[in-house]
Design a protein around this nucleic acid. Sequence first.
DNA 1: AGCGGATGTACAG
DNA 2: TGTACCTCCGCTT
Length: 269
Amino acid sequence: MPEGHTIHRLAEDHRARFLDRPVRVSSPQGKFSDAAALLDGQPLTDAEAHGKHLFLGFGALGWVHIHLGLFGKVDFGDAPAPPPTDTVRLRLTTPKAHVDLRGPTTCALITDGEKTAVHERLGPDPLRPDDDPDRVWARLSRSRTTVAALLLDQKIIAGVGNVYRAEVLFRLGIDPYRAGRDITRAEWDAIWADLVELMREGVRNNRIDTVRPEHMPEAMGRPPRVDDHGGEVYVYRRDRRPCHVCGTEVRTAGLAARNLFWCPACQRR
DNA sequence: AGCGGATGTACAG
DNA sequence: TGTACCTCCGCTT
């Protein structure tokens, strides 16, 4: 689940249920018990996302910094909360709602200063309205690294994950192995604009859909399909299957310890 | 029961 | 470049 859209949606969902309400805070699994005891009974004062990082504000006590990593999960539910399973790292409860966090890479109580430091090591985020794409362009346009690797580098641009990377490059017909410095300004502007649009829709729907209406199977005269990861996509994990646009076999390759997916015909140098 | 992955990152060398 | 870490699920035996 967790690319940037998931985390921004989590911030919204935490605000809707817990903002300005005193919450019971616990760590059934135990790894966050000391901080949980400190926060227990305090109101949630803010919830904010930057890229794949989530920050839950507890006033002067600081922020709970959460990163889901690859496996982390968040489950919301009503009250009364069921008995927690033994992997629940963090549980928030009010008389009306609860939320459980499992398997995060990071769950730590941090200060304002530490939070600032996290923001400073992250690049602009297409989902933060004030973030400046020119800062991404400044680095991308000077780099010999492939555009595919650059899009996953959170110091350069925050929030893009393996699905959005594959899909935005497909939608713009860009070969993933082109160097950042060979991307034109017009192409970069289109990448950023497309990420803003796709990721906003991702927050709205809580899933990733990237296939344009004219390429949906019904529009292409093919039977409806179901992608096994929740949304409709062009190339992500569709290797060895036909491209939805041209029919060429979608390819996959390892790139910097991640699987890359692309259509060699639609995405040309 | 045991395995291999997975929308991620950090660190070692 | 490889490896470790967090958890769950689906596939194979």
